[in-house]
Amino acid sequence: MKQIELKICLGTSCYVMGSSHLHELVDMVPSRFGDIVNVVGHNCLGQCSKNLEAGGPPYVQVDDEIIPDASIEKVLQYLEIKLK
């Protein structure tokens, strides 16, 4: 199966809105889903300047999809559904 890339935005807006706490995903995701998901921090994804209606920062990008208002639970739930 193709590896999924999970990018956590570390831009200013995302960082102050809580993406700094999302670093727990680095350990949490592999222990739950194995090596299929690769979690990386990423430079500003540029979502904060265009996507304000869908939901605010912090943003997480899973392959091509953006998860707004990301929290650890939300991201894990999303992966749960995606990988089912």
Partner: peptide, 8 residues
């Protein structure tokens, strides 16, 4: 950066 002017 418009995003930085978000009051939240």
């Amino acid at each position: 950066n418009q995003a930085h002017y978000d009051p939240s």
